[in-house]
Computed example of a mutant assay.
Amino acid sequence: MSSGTPTSSASPSESSYDRTRMRQWARGRARSAGIDRRDLLKLVAAASAAAPLIPAAASPAHAAQSLAGVVKPLPPELFTVRGTNAETNFSALRDTGLLTPADRFFVRNHTATPVVDATDWTLTVWGDGLAGGPVDFSYEALRALPAVSRTAFVECAGNGRSFFTSQQGQQVGGTAWTLGAIGTARWRG
């Protein structure tokens, strides 16, 4: 990685999926298949509320790694970069308690983190469960919705995937996570 460009360990099918989803998002055609409208709004609101919690810069004592499209600093003492993802190092969780600090939460990345201007950004929600057609929400309108907080454990479905090869003798595609694609946080949205 001397060029500063992250290398991808994603399988061809995962890379193809990532490219397809990025094209869909860029053309405004991406849909949230299988996500209930209320759950989608809760997720968007939680992400909006959590954005200020992401540190603006890494510790000056340690140079942070970076991934294209990821705005969160990834210092090597906290993360192992795996293609377009960043796995939390277990040693970084020592003495953090039951909740995973935002600066140590793993990164599962299918697309670039959008950089939006809150003054003119809108979210359009559509789908079969919506009566009356698509609904547009401004950033301000989302922030005005009632907020709730929940403590939840998040784990990438591929967590531990690398052990299929070392313990089961099976070669599998996708990110070769060990056991750091997990975290517990208090989410508000």
Rank of each mutant, 00 (worst) to 15 (best):
32 S>G: 08
85 N>C: 14
48 S>D: 06
112 A>M: 07
86 A>L: 11
152 A>V: 08
37 R>E: 15
152 A>Q: 12
138 S>R: 01
139 Y>H: 09
182 I>V: 14
74 L>M: 03
64 A>V: 04
25 W>K: 04
124 T>Q: 15
113 T>E: 14
119 T>K: 14
156 C>G: 08
69 G>V: 03
137 F>W: 15
58 A>D: 12
102 A>M: 13
128 D>A: 10
171 Q>P: 03
48 S>I: 01
176 A>S: 12
57 A>L: 12
36 D>C: 07
105 F>T: 03
62 H>D: 03
181 A>K: 02
185 A>S: 13
168 Q>M: 13
47 A>T: 02
59 S>T: 02
183 G>E: 10
180 G>D: 09
4 G>F: 12
159 N>H: 07
95 D>W: 09
75 P>I: 03
48 S>Y: 07
89 N>Y: 04
102 A>D: 08
160 G>A: 06
136 D>L: 02
149 S>D: 03
58 A>W: 08
148 V>M: 01
39 D>A: 15
18 D>S: 01
46 A>S: 14
21 R>P: 00
182 I>M: 13
159 N>F: 07
110 H>L: 15
111 T>Y: 12
157 A>M: 05
98 L>T: 02
74 L>K: 05
137 F>G: 03
126 W>N: 07
26 A>N: 15
158 G>P: 03
118 A>L: 10
4 G>A: 12
17 Y>K: 07
91 S>I: 11
27 R>P: 00
28 G>M: 06
119 T>C: 09
60 P>M: 05
132 G>T: 07
16 S>C: 00
185 A>L: 06
73 P>D: 12
117 D>I: 06
43 L>C: 10
